[in-house]
Design a protein around this nucleic acid. Structure first.
Lengths: 215, 215
DNA sequence: CATACTATTGATTGATCGTTCAACTTAATC
DNA sequence: GATTAAGTTGAACGATCAATCAATAGTATG
């Protein structure tokens, strides 16, 4: 039992949720206080400015990456390549559960805050890097199946690219289809890398839907 | 010479630029008026609410897509596949010219406004669709080089996915590298589609950088 | 109990938010 | 030149914004 900074945690969590749901600028201090059931003095006691609160939220996301995003997938999926698609499936689930209202928290803040807050930009980049590294480690584990000349760091970044771009379209269209389609094509691309130009001659669009969803 | 709605155009253009640079919520009416050298009464004479102004901006982007984004590329590039990468190169140039402060206008608004404004969400989706259709038409033109079972609509959406995801990372890292890398891997994927599993046995990472940049 | 430090309260600040509107000017129509 | 309509002005509105701070309460140490 940590009596600890109960209030601080509640404020941080409320800010995290509201920034995720509405963005940083659109979220007012008063709204955060209401959700956290705290008073403005408490907030400013722990966080000197609203921007400092944002930075703390971004630090929190760095902490949450492994236990919330990566570990649960690794626990139930063993194959390194399937682990990557398992992570992507987590975001697919989030889209569906929230009915496309919640996207990637980092991606949202990346577009909103990268220019205006240098500190936030730095932490956003660190969050991206942590995510990429997790994927890259999967690719390293599967390196025996990949051509040796594949740039695994670049491919990991590409996975993030597809995730972010796919989520953006899914939210714009309020449909899971663009996200699933993007992941499907990423799967096709990686399959072709794995095959390494030797086999594969059939119809990718016919066989892939069957393979997809097995993780 | 259209005396026309000079003031309306100035307000619309100022709003477009400011929404692009700072987002919708972070841009105040007062700031728009200052940039447009207009008074609040004029703005509200043409646009009943701030949201209506946003909708007009999004309509404007729909109009600008062809003359500003597509046509210039089509004018100097003939090959349909290279036209796609020419369009992507336009966004690469924008990132560099603005030092990563300006991303895709539609993508930014997609994440910020999709949930809060149904009208905006609709127009954002229409902007995306127009963009995808332009790319899809290129793919149709090159259909003789592509396997017939390739889903060209899905591939066009994938191009948009890579563009948006790549720009997001470029802005977060303040570096063109993530964008270029993403486009490079997209190029590799499309090359493999074009090759259709017959030839291709070399090192894609070695040969692609040479081909890239020729459009 | 006293001292010191941490934490919490909430009324209040000045600035800025989007928006309104009655008065006014300009341009076109008859 | 009178009438009508289109466009413009800017002061003012209430609401909300992020932020402040003196006062108070709680808790731990001596």
């Amino acid at each position: 039992m940590t009596p600890a900074n109960d209030t601080r945690d509640r404020i941080l969590e409320a800010a995290r949720q509201l920034f995720l749901a509405q963005g940083y600028t659109a979220t007012g201090i008063a709204q955060i206080l209401k959700h956290a059931d705290a008073k403005s003095g408490s907030l400013y006691y722990f966080f000197p400015t609203k921007e400092d609160l944002l930075l703390a939220v971004l630090e929190r996301y760095k902490e949450l990456l492994w236990p919330l995003v990566i570990q649960p997938v690794f626990d139930r999926v063993a194959d390194p390549i399937e682990r990557i698609f398992g992570i992507l499936d987590g975001y697919r689930r989030m889209l569906l559960m929230t009915q496309f209202t919640h996207g990637c928290p980092i991606g949202n803040l990346a577009l909103e805050m990268s220019e205006v807050s240098p500190g936030a930009r730095q932490l956003i980049a660190e969050n991206f890097t942590g995510w990429r590294k997790a994927v890259e480690r999967c690719l390293d584990e599967a390196s025996d199946r990949l051509p040796e000349d594949v740039d695994r760091a670049a491919l990991a970044a590409f996975v993030l690219t597809v995730m972010e771009g796919g989520m953006m379209q899914a939210r714009a269209y309020r449909s899971i289809e663009p996200f699933e389609s993007a992941v499907l094509l990423l799967r096709d691309y990686i399959d072709r890398l794995l095959a390494h130009g030797t086999q594969w001659g059939g119809s990718p669009d016919d066989e892939l839907p069957a393979r997809w969803r097995e993780n």
